[in-house]
Nucleic acid binder design. Structure first.
Length: 339
DNA sequence: GCTCCACGGGAAGGATAGGCTT
DNA sequence: AAGCCTATCCTTCCCGTGGAGC
């Protein structure tokens, strides 16, 4: 049934990519000066999740490194490393320059110095989910160092620049922008087809089922591959030699539920209380929500902290905040209709 | 227009953790 | 071993901004 589970995992970078030639070529040309020993412009990749931004960034840099020995590369996910310290540390880690920095109390400037002193091969730093970085000075610092070239990845450009001061934005607005759109249905199908070809036994899944998955994924390749993985696991557990319509049907909500459950697990009891209030009321105005929350917990946090929680929860897609001012209401996100 | 409400940036402060110095 | 230092993380307070509704 499953021949190579790796290709069904999130984060797998295929040897060939589909439907993204213009983006690959654009990014390659932006990075091209590095091969001549010159610093490249900063590239900014934007687009919805599952549109292939991370995959294309990794693929393109890999390809560049295959052709040119003297290019280093470091990938940093800013969602997981959102502080200045952690992100800078990760960059150094990729260069093997952290040997004697194990302690947590290294002054921040020392990390920056360490980066500045780096005199090896040019480095491409891919900063994924860069809008999550809470101190954007790292971008400014790296920009000023010619040995580093940056590929920034964010869902939306506006949100990225929202939290930056003038100094940083003026440097970055000159960079190259590469936009990604959601995959069309037939594009997703051929992506899934390729994964099935590499990862599953021949004939393990038929085109009708692939189309079904692509349809449910609504243009998001990450979701599509996750559904394929779940369906393949179901079929394997059944001892079947092929993924059935039934496997796909049950995999769609399960893959979605899994993401949701993981997010819920990561909430604190206060955040969970907020979630439960919103769940119970359906749609609730801020003042009511704050009051109901204060009723519900022993030692309530301030409204400001609650707003921080809600913002975080919105980023995890656990709640939706509608309206920007007095019209603000909170509700749970609408689940896509079952397939 | 004016008022009100809510948002969210920023600064400040406390808790906590780990390395370094004495 | 104790105390100091510097970092992160979390929380709170203050307050400017801006849209909605009157």
């Amino acid at each position: 049934m499953i021949e190579d589970a790796r290709v069904l995992r999130a984060g797998f970078v295929p040897r060939e990519v589909e439907h993204r030639d213009p983006e690959v070529n654009h990014l390659s040309s932006v990075l091209e000066p590095i091969t001549r020993g010159e610093p490249a412009d900063t590239a900014l990749l934007t687009g919805p999740s599952g549109a292939g931004k991370t995959c294309i960034a990794k693929f393109t840099v890999d390809r560049l490194r295959q052709r040119h020995l003297d290019v280093e590369y470091q990938y940093v996910n800013c969602w997981q490393n959102h502080s200045h310290y952690r992100a800078a540390y990760r960059v150094l880690e990729g260069l093997g320059r952290t040997v004697d920095i194990h302690r947590q109390s290294t002054p921040r400037d020392e990390l920056t110095e360490r980066l500045r002193d780096y005199a090896g091969s040019p480095v491409v730093v891919v900063l994924d989910e860069v809008d999550q970085l809470d101190d954007k000075r790292l971008l400014y610092d790296l920009h000023a160092m010619p040995q580093f070239s940056m590929v920034l990845i964010a869902n939306r450009e506006e949100e990225l620049f929202a939290g930056m001061d003038e100094r940083v934005t003026s440097r970055l607005t000159g960079g190259e922008r590469i936009r990604f759109d959601r995959y069309a249905l037939d594009e997703l199908v051929s992506i899934l087809e390729a994964r099935a070809r590499w990862g599953l036994e021949p004939d393990a899944i038929h085109r009708a089922e692939l189309e079904r998955i692509a349809d449910a994924a609504a243009g998001d390749a990450r979701v599509a591959i996750s559904v394929l993985r779940t369906a393949a696991r179901h079929a394997r557990d059944d001892g079947a030699d092929r993924i059935t319509e039934e496997n796909v049907s049950s995999a769609v909500p399960e893959a979605r539920a899994e993401v949701h459950r993981k997010s819920l697990d990561s909430l604190t009891s206060h955040q969970r209380a907020l979630y439960e209030v919103i769940e119970a009321r359906g749609e609730v105005e801020p003042a009511d929500l704050y009051a109901a929350y204060r009723e519900r917990v022993d030692d309530p946090k301030s409204d400001r902290t609650v707003r921080n929680y809600l913002q975080k929860m919105a980023q995890y897609d656990l709640v939706v905040a509608e309206g920007t001012s007095r019209d603000r209401v909170y509700r749970l996100p609408e689940r896509l209709a079952a397939v």
